[in-house]
Nucleic acid binder design. Sequence first.
DNA 1: TTGTAAGCGTTATCAT
DNA 2: ATGATAACGCTTACAA
Lengths: 351, 351
Amino acid sequence: MPTINDVAKRANVSPVTVSRVLNGAPNVNDMTRLRVNRAIAELGYVPNIVARSLRSRRTRSIALILPDITNPFWPTVARGVEDAAQRDGYTVLLCNSDENAQKQARYLEAVISQQVDGVLIAPANSDAANLAPLRDRAIPTVVIDRRVDGWDGDAVRGDSVGGAELLTRHLIELGHRRIAMLSGPATTSTSQDRFAGYQAALQRAGIPLDPDLVRFGEFRQGSGAEMTHAVLALQPAPTAIFAANNAIALGAIQAVGERGLQVPQDVALVCFDDVSPSAQLFPFLTVAEQPAYQMGLEAARLLFARLDEGDAHPPRLITLPVRMIVRYSCGSGRGESILSLPLPHTAVVAA
Amino acid sequence: MPTINDVAKRANVSPVTVSRVLNGAPNVNDMTRLRVNRAIAELGYVPNIVARSLRSRRTRSIALILPDITNPFWPTVARGVEDAAQRDGYTVLLCNSDENAQKQARYLEAVISQQVDGVLIAPANSDAANLAPLRDRAIPTVVIDRRVDGWDGDAVRGDSVGGAELLTRHLIELGHRRIAMLSGPATTSTSQDRFAGYQAALQRAGIPLDPDLVRFGEFRQGSGAEMTHAVLALQPAPTAIFAANNAIALGAIQAVGERGLQVPQDVALVCFDDVSPSAQLFPFLTVAEQPAYQMGLEAARLLFARLDEGDAHPPRLITLPVRMIVRYSCGSGRGESILSLPLPHTAVVAA
DNA sequence: TTGTAAGCGTTATCAT
DNA sequence: ATGATAACGCTTACAA
């Protein structure tokens, strides 16, 4: 592996000059720059980022810590982050915490050890203690998708409360009164907020909350199936289900099928997050779609801005609008129509 | 950020001794080790991997370069890699080449620059020139899922030919004679091999190959939909479709629906790779499932073995068996039965 | 069992 | 516009 010194010798300059060329410093003679670039090409030289980072104390890398890489929502967020990072010349370390606070803690230590310049994290739960290693070292951090109690730093979230309220209201308007709410862990803010929206919609419609119809589990298909079986066994059973995310909704569809019933004929279903990429295949599934790609993009931008500016600005919170996509099929069941509504009572808020 | 020197001072030892404790060297006095560990804990010291890597010339990181992170097949592979890596204390850099040779080249340069110890790659195409930077620098590499012409290094693949033949034969046994083959880029070996298996099955059944029924596009839903529309517009139209991967199959389902038809009533469909996690939702879809998780696991193990052994062993090729899952529904369409067949003529081959 | 010295490849700083 | 020097934090090699 050729080093900067090899390049310097071949170009008859000092290593410092090569470094200047590599970093696009303005004060380099055009001829010199040419010679250096030729030497770089001839040797197939690639800078050693490890050495650069050690000296410059910046790695131009960020960590992206996600709770579940097998849920298509998160890879979409990741692509937004990647695209933003690529534009700014940052490398993304993608970590999968598996919704597990311990695994998340291990990854945090790992990426601190890797000297990442900043961290994007969708935390496994809303306990700020889990983020202490970041705060202690003053590592710029943007929290994605979820609230963390007592943490006031940069954050990007979808409007969980508003979206949940809208979905629930939709079911109510269709005539449903026994609506089950199948949610993720009670310790995540998205579970809490979507439950709050559900509760608000019921209250506004004068429908009493039946605690039996509210379940907290995991944001996974298996958990969704279990919870669905549980609520469908109730007497009387709910006529509609609100799934707090796409994986839970898939579990619901599965469980409904296992009981010899069908969505939407026998049980109505709505959910948060789209079930992409196969969304078109469920023309009956009304969803509150969060702009996943944009969420990643905005979060990364926020982080890069913070890395540039330091603590000049106060923390920023970006709340992204959620749009409800009402899908319904007509006639034979093969028709497809998508009705897309902008959410009136949400907006991008800079706090 | 405390350094190894801070720890050394607090524990009244030299930095070298701290380094020994960190790396689990055997020749350290128990009392000393205790003092050092206490100092580490008290200071909240985390080793600087950048400095360690610069000196030791090993980063304990590997790159995983995948063609499409939004296809659930690849995240599953990634989880296998991650799990193997975590066990061996390696960090995985996940890169998404987007099936794009240029983007792949940029990522290769980036991870070389990052000094990764090794690379796992599912190459965007079968041209060995794309992997030259790895070969030139003698960076241990394992090629996943796809062949690279003229590259003889470690590799892990599924049995594309056998799986394709099995799927095609299945359709033939169901009575189909006009079977469309919708594939990915002709430059990827998986497209080529699956086409070869398709061809072999037709030939064995004495069915002439109709070039109009064979299409090469991209491994994406959109491409699958386009190709489906194209072949369904033929006169006479095919009665069955073999999709070369899950995304193409989803596109086929979509396009069939858009034409007012249904799978499997109007058009039969089989595909390579499962459409997980929504597999249960398509109880009609017969697939050739590659063991994605295991593929990642084996590939990582192969790489770690290579990193340990150097070039002691000749290149190893692991071909993983593909299992065909025949799904069929009875009666109302809600029944689910899965018939799983081990593939008789495939095996793990160590070459 | 522990320590000293040197150096990994780059860039910050200061000088010319 | 270019160069000399030192330093980033750690581990290797050697010494005690």
